[in-house]
Amino acid sequence: MKALRILIAIGRNTFTELVRQRVFFFLLIFALLVIGNSAFMARLSFQEQFQMLKDISLGAMSVFSSMLAILATAGFLPKDMEDRTIYTILAKPVPRWLYLLGKLTGIFSLLAVAVLLMAALFLGVLWMQESSVLAETRAHLQNASAEELAMALKEVTDSTFQANLIPGIIVIFLKAALLASLTLFISSFATSSIFTILMAAAVYFIGHLQSTARDYWLAGVDPEWWMRLLAAAVALVFPDLQAFNLTDDIIAGTAVPMTLFVETALLGLLYTTVYFTLAAFVFSGREL
């Protein structure tokens, strides 16, 4: 119970600190992107407008949440050491793992709020555009038969909101949480935040190629032993970030089966747990 109180206190403090650093200002850029995009797209057909809006908004959500996860996590350990707040906290009966977990909880909360706000903005604009196109369609088809009107309206609603967007948005959050946990692990042995950011960015790019390296390694087609070793190293050390890229296909209208969503969420949770455990293990032996 006491541990939970400490966890909540550190988490809340981290969240407040990050909010004070005006990290939510990026939402203005996101809003400009989403609203500006829909204004610019007015000359396209409604199917194109909806497709562009979903493509750009979900892509931006993924970029912003990933960047936020890496930058917010990479900065806190060096900053706490520089401010000496870490010594004040750890001088009290607070285990190092609990301190890290509290910090990570604060960052997860920030990510959750950021993703929720972006999702609300995106869905709001999508809904407004849909309402406007529906009203136009009704006006144009005033004299059409009920079947014709119903089919036209269905065509509009089919191109806008799909329930599939929700698991897509959840997976964007899970990917950001995984990246935060991974950055925390790098930060636990890094000596500067620049090193942490660069390493996390490199892992981000390599992580998207992990599945290619894994398949190549498992196929065992390369006769060169060192190529097989390199592919194995990439497959074993880096996370499979390609597994979290569901939104590209969700936007295209592909339905997400529940099993795929559950398996992806499970992979995200397992990676997050593994990286956090390793971060806590390394950090507990670090000289401060």
Partner: peptide
């Protein structure tokens, strides 16, 4: 495209 930005790139 490889880094998960296929759809924005297509847009």
């Amino acid at each position: 495209a490889l880094s998960g930005f296929r759809s924005p790139l297509a847009a």
